[in-house]
Design a protein around this nucleic acid. Structure first.
Length: 467
RNA sequence: GGUGGAGUGGCCGAGAGGCGAGGCUCAGGACUGCAAAUCCUGCCACACGGGUUCAAAUCCCGUCUCCACCUCCA
C-alpha cells in the first residue's frame, strides 16, 4: 500500500500524491515563543518529525518549514512581567524550544522563519485582500477580514458561522461582524509596531503563517500540520486569508492530538512540572522521544510518570538487544526498513502497529543471540538482518541509539571507565574460577551500587549503566 | 447551543465483522554457582442496554460517562 494520510479536511485517510513528483512541502505551525516548552509542544515536533523522516525515506525531497511566532500579545505581557524587552523574551524562549527539540532529536527544519521577518509579505497580503474586498481597514489602524464576504469558511472545523459563540468583546470594536478577525492590530502606546498604509501596528495571530507558508512553499503545497486545537480559529483563518488571496494553500491538513494530564489537556498551571527541561532529568531524551512518538499521533497521550518509566523500560530492552548484537557482530548494525514496518507507516503513520513488529523482531533476535554457536555464520547473518531491521525502524522514529545526537546521554561510557570496570570484572572472574562466590557476589554488589549492571554471558561478563 | 473525539485485561496501548497486536507488571518454568539479561507458559479484555448477522470489541438504534474547540493554545 502506498502512503495514506488522514486529512482533517475530508475526515478520512487519503492517498498521498505530492503536487510535484518526488518533492513534498510541509508547513508546521511552530511555537509562539512566550514560555518554556512542555512535552505537549514537543510532541507535535516529534510527530511531524516522524512524518518528515518517513517521507524522506520514501524518497521525497522534503521542504519542511516550521515557523516561530515571535510577536504576539502574550510575548508583550511576558516582557512586562519579566522586565525585559519583548524581543529578548522571544529570543529566550525560541532558544529554549530549540534546545528541547534537539534533546529529542527533532531535525532542524529546512527553514525556520520568524513572523517579524515577514512584515513586508504580510502587508502585501493585506493589500491584496483589501483590494479584492475581503478585508477592510476601519481607520483606527486595525485591519480585519470580513468573514461574511467569503465564499466558504469553516470547512476544516465543519462549523456554521452562526453557530459560533460570539466573542465577548465584539461589541465595542471596529468590526463589521463579531466573527471578523484581526489581520493587523493597531499599536498601543509603548508597543512595538511596524508602519503600514493603514497605520502603525503589529500582526494579528493568523496572518504570519499564511504569509510565510506562501513565501517558502508557494501558493499551493502538500501538507500543513499543527496541534488539534489550532483547527479553529487559527487554521480556518489561515485558509480564509490564503484562499481569498487566490492561493490554493494546503492540500492536506494534519493535526496531532495533545498530551493530557489527569484526563485534561495540559494548561499552563498543570504544565509546569511537565516542562521538557524537567522530564529529561528523569529519563533520557531518547526515552522521552520514544514515549511521545510511540502513541499514534491522533491519539491523546495521557501522561504519567509511571507510563513514561514503563515505556523507557520497553525501549531499554530494544536497546539492549542492539547492544548485544553489536558486540557479537563486532560492528554497528546496518539500517534496513522491513515490509511490515513500511506497511504500518504507510497506513497514516501507524507507529503502534510498527512497534508491535519491532517487539517481535527483538524477541526473535534475542532468541537467535542465545542460540548462536561459535562459527555459526548463518546465525550471525540472521542476527545482522534482524538488528538492521530494528535499527532501521528506530532510525525512522528518530530513536536510533547510535545517533550521535544522543551521545550526550551516555556521559560516563568512556574508555577509562570501561577499563576500570573490566579490572573489577577480572577480579570477580578469578574469584568465580576458584568458586569463591562470596567475593564474586560482593564485587558485583559493590559495582551495582555505583549504578553498573553485570550480565554474565557465555562469552564473558558485560556491563551496562543501570539508569 | 454548535462541532469533533474518547471509554479495551492489574496497568499502558493498537485494531475496526471471523484464527488472543504489542509492551509493562505479576506468577510459574528454562538458563545461571546465585543473580542479571534472555526465552517459554499463564493472566481469553473491549462503558451499558437492545438489534442485525452463521459470526460483533468492530455494523445499527438507544443510554451513560469523560474530554476538547467555539477568536490565548501544540
Amino acid at each position: 500500500m502506498s502512503l495514506h494520510l488522514y486529512n482533517t479536511l475530508s475526515r478520512s485517510s487519503e492517498e498521498f500524491v505530492s503536487l510535484t513528483p518526488g518533492k513534498a512541502g510541509i508547513y508546521l505551525c511552530g511555537a509562539t515563543v512566550q514560555g518554556a516548552p512542555h512535552i505537549g509542544h514537543i510532541r507535535s515536533g516529534v510527530n511531524f518529525d516522524i512524518l518528515r523522516r518517513w517521507l524522506t525515506h520514501l524518497g521525497y525531497e522534503v521542504t519542511f518549514i516550521r515557523n516561530v511566532t515571535d510577536i504576539d500579545d502574550k510575548i508583550l505581557q511576558k516582557a512586562e512581567v519579566e522586565g525585559i524587552p519583548w524581543w529578548a523574551v522571544a529570543m529566550k524562549y525560541e532558544q529554549a524550544f530549540s534546545w528541547a527539540y534537539s534533546r529529542v532529536n527533532v531535525l532542524s527544519p529546512t527553514y525556520e522563519p520568524r513572523a517579524t521577518g515577514h512584515i513586508t509579505q504580510m502587508i502585501e497580503l493585506m493589500q491584496t485582500l483589501i483590494d479584492n474586498g475581503t478585508a477592510y481597514a476601519p481607520g483606527n489602524g486595525d485591519v480585519y477580514l470580513n468573514v461574511r464576504s467569503l465564499k466558504s469558511y469553516l470547512t476544516l472545523s465543519n462549523q456554521k458561522i452562526d453557530d459560533l459563540l460570539s466573542a465577548g468583546d465584539a461589541e465595542d470594536s471596529f468590526k463589521k461582524d463579531p466573527r471578523d478577525f484581526a489581520l493587523w492590530k493597531s499599536a498601543k502606546p509603548g508597543e512595538p509596531s511596524w508602519p503600514t498604509p493603514w497605520g502603525d501596528g503589529r500582526p494579528g495571530w493568523h496572518l504570519e503563517c499564511s504569509a510565510m507558508a506562501h513565501t517558502y512553499l508557494g501558493a499551493e503545497f502538500d501538507i500543513h500540520g499543527g496541534g488539534l486545537d489550532l483547527i479553529f480559529p487559527h487554521h480556518e483563518n489561515e485558509i480564509a486569508q490564503s484562499e481569498s488571496a487566490g492561493w490554493g494553500f494546503s492540500k492536506i491538513w494534519m493535526h496531532n492530538a495533545w498530551v493530557t494530564a489527569s484526563g485534561e489537556k495540559m494548561s499552563k498551571s498543570l504544565g509546569n512540572s511537565l516542562l521538557v527541561s524537567e522530564i529529561v532529568q528523569r529519563v533520557r531524551g531518547i526515552e522521552l522521544r520514544w514515549y511521545l512518538g510511540s502513541a499514534h499521533y491522533r491519539s491523546m497521550v495521557e501522561f504519567s510518570f509511571e507510563a513514561l518509566e514503563e515505556t523507557a523500560v520497553n525501549f531499554r530492552r530494544i536497546e539492549g538487544f542492539l547492544a548485544r548484537a553489536t558486540e557479537i557482530l563486532n560492528e554497528e548494525p546496518g539500517l534496513l526498513v522491513s515490509l511490515d514496518f513500511t506497511a504500518a507507516m504507510n497506513d497514516d503513520l501507524a507507529v503502534p502497529t510498527a512497534l508491535a513488529g519491532i517487539s517481535e523482531l527483538v524477541r526473535d533476535g534475542n532468541t537467535a543471540l542465545s542460540s548462536l554457536t561459535f562459527g555459526d555464520e548463518a546465525g550471525q547473518k540472521e542476527i545482522a538482518r534482524i538488528a538492521a531491521e530494528v535499527r532501521g525502524a528506530l532510525a525512522i522514529l528518530g530513536c536510533d541509539p547510535f545517533d550521535p545526537t544522543f551521545a550526550m546521554d551516555k556521559p560516563a561510557a568512556t574508555d577509562a571507565m570501561d577499563g576500570l570496570v573490566k579490572l573489577a570484572l577480572a577480579q570477580r572472574e578469578s574469584a568465580r574460577a576458584r568458586k569463591d562466590f562470596a567475593t564474586a557476589d560482593a564485587i558485583r554488589d559493590q559495582i551495582l551500587e555505583l549504578g553498573i549492571l553485570i550480565e554474565d554471558t557465555p562469552a564473558g561478563s558485560r556491563w551496562t549503566l543501570a539508569r
